[in-house]
Simulated assay, not measured.
Amino acid sequence: MPAPVIELSDVSRTYDEGPPALQDASLVIQPGEAVAILGPSGSGKSTMLNLIAGLDRPDTGTVTVDGTRVDQLNEAELTRLRRTKIGMIFQFFNLLDDLTVVDNIALPAQLAGMGRREAQSRALELLGNLDIKRHAKAYPGRLSGGQRQRVAVARALMNRPPLLLADEPTGALDHASGKDVGRLLNELNADGQTIVVVTHDEALAESCTHRTVRLLDGRISADTTTAARR
């Protein structure tokens, strides 16, 4: 069996004097899985995502992504990890309004050291794959929410990361656009992309993942697998 893409081992995180945001969480996600992390507000979903992405550190336990101990990295190493091993999709897109679509997508590769011409070529390839190449020269503010989220997905895939993290990817979209993003994530997983979707949207989880991890009061309360959706 290949090495896991994500491995959490007895991870806990507490903020200030409150109860644990995440407590004794252990989780293994294998290459090619599509996993939804579900739970109500305050259940620990965002904390888990932030620990996986190296945006936060556990108080106890270990966090490993694609063979790298995330909890042991310094800030510069964490930045490199996120550029090369983790693609992130956010609820509110986080695109740069003063850059064109193609420049937004190419930026992560250029920051990682890829030449501008090669980065632009890769960005245009992704735009074609996601059926939005006609918007390459447009600015994000001229696009619909669904189109902007497709641009954000392309940017997240730019450096061919082994892991794609989606944080409430349909939270800012209308129903039709949300279903479109769900189909897109399903297609990416069908092509072998490992995906973790953090959401409260049961319909999104059902449409694009085949495993559901439920959190309640900072603990994993259920971990269920269904037939993969293709």
Rank of each mutant, 00 (worst) to 15 (best):
D97G: 10
R80A: 15
T209W: 04
S46I: 01
S177L: 10
L143M: 08
L143S: 08
L216A: 15
S144P: 07
A190N: 12
L78D: 12
A123W: 09
S26R: 12
P4I: 02
D56H: 04
A190L: 08
R57H: 11
F92S: 14
L107F: 13
T212H: 15
I6M: 01
Q193H: 14
E168S: 15
I132A: 08
V153C: 04
D167H: 13
G42H: 11
L27R: 03
P162Q: 05
H175C: 00
V5R: 03
V213E: 13
V63N: 06
G146L: 09
Q110E: 15
P169E: 12
N50T: 00
E118K: 11
G54H: 02
K45V: 08
R230N: 05
Y139Q: 04
Q23D: 15
A205N: 10
Q30L: 01
T79G: 10
D223S: 14
R230E: 04
D97R: 08
T226E: 07
Q110I: 14
R142Y: 05
G171R: 03
A112E: 08
T226K: 13
R155C: 02
M1F: 11
D71M: 06
S121D: 04
L126I: 03
Q193L: 06
D167V: 11
P2A: 14
I105W: 09
T212D: 09
L127K: 04
Q147V: 09
L81H: 05
M158T: 06
R117Q: 12
T225S: 11
G18K: 11
I220V: 15
V213W: 11
P31G: 02
T14E: 09
D16E: 14
T47C: 07
I86L: 06
T14N: 07
P169G: 13
S9E: 12
T170W: 11
N50G: 00
I220Y: 10
D24G: 10
V5N: 03
N50E: 01
T170V: 11
L124F: 00
M1Q: 13
T100K: 10
G145R: 14
G182Q: 06
F93V: 08
V70D: 01
A21M: 07
N189K: 06
R160F: 03
C208D: 02
V102K: 03
A190S: 12
I195C: 07
R183L: 09
V198H: 02
A21E: 05
T225W: 03
L163V: 02
A112D: 14
V101L: 04
L130A: 04
P161E: 04
R142V: 00
